[in-house]
């Protein structure tokens, strides 16, 4: 598993209008970080920059002390060893569940199958291995999406609003299971969410972004025990989401 460091990272789509301003944080191998903030605050952009799907305007991203993106270097997305789970799940509709999970694994066919089946069992969707994505529920699709992202054994797993479209009871169950699996596999993960409960219950660290800046950061425990005025500020940010 990999460590991550984001240094002085800024980004703007239009000159002079920053979406992210001087973002700094680091993550140890095996840690889970939640990025909290209202819609449009820049948290998804931050995730896309770490994944290499967008290029930062300034600053750098380091994985395991190697620069993967700064003003001189850019390692392509496909070479960053990063897994990505998106809210829309984006399962390949023409492939069966097992083939979706096997898609990114670079091993022999039997090994691929073995890894994929192990993950499907872990996420309790192995009975749908030969179904197509449109034949299973949205909760099951989300499990498959996470399993697929974990299958190539990525250094860092990025999850963008992974439970955003699911109902409350399913969300609760899935985040407990996902945290357990991530921890058991010692997976470094970043979860972007606008849900305070997602962030607190799943992660070791939390950063809160508002208007492109980090306004709060600390351990999940710290965030739940903050001063009244900070609590008020955080509450207003979260309630805006």
């Amino acid at each position: 598993m990999a460590s991550l460091e984001v240094k002085d990272l800024s980004h703007s789509y239009i000159r002079g209008k920053s979406v992210l301003k001087e973002i700094n944080f680091s993550l140890e191998a095996g840690e889970i970080l939640s990025i909290l903030g209202p819609s449009g605050c820049g948290k998804t952009t931050l995730l896309r920059i770490i994944a290499g799907l967008e290029k930062e305007t300034s600053g750098s991203v380091n994985i395991d002390d190697h620069i993967i993106s700064d003003h001189l270097h850019t390692v392509l997305t496909e070479n960053r060893n990063i897994g990505l789970v998106v809210q829309e799940r984006a399962l390949f509709p023409h492939l069966t569940i097992i083939n979706n999970v096997m898609f990114g694994i670079k091993e022999t066919k039997s090994k691929k199958y073995e890894i994929a089946m192990r993950l499907l069992k872990l996420f309790k969707v192995d009975k749908y291995a030969y179904n197509f994505p449109n034949e299973i529920s949205s909760g099951e699709q989300q499990r498959v999406a996470i399993a697929r992202a974990m299958a190539p054994n990525p250094g860092i797993l990025l999850m963008d609003e992974p439970f955003g479209t699911l109902d409350q009871s399913l969300t609760h169950q899935l985040r407990t299971e996902t945290r357990k699996i991530l921890k058991d596999n010692n997976t470094t993960a970043i979860i972007v969410s606008h849900d305070f409960d997602d962030a607190i219950s799943m992660s070791d660290k939390v950063i809160v972004i508002d208007d492109g800046q980090i306004v709060q950061s600390g351990s999940a425990k710290d965030i739940t025990h903050i001063s009244p005025e900070k609590s008020l500020k955080l509450g207003s940010i979260i309630s805006n989401s």
Binding site: G52, T77, E78, I82, G83, V85, A90, F103, A149
Partner: peptide, 21 residues
């Protein structure tokens, strides 16, 4: 969905592979 491309790229599939697979 363009997110399918994003996910495929994180799964080390780009260029011709993205197109063909």
């Amino acid at each position: 969905n363009e997110r399918i491309d994003d996910v495929a790229r994180t799964l080390k599939t780009s260029g011709w592979s993205l197109l063909s697979q």
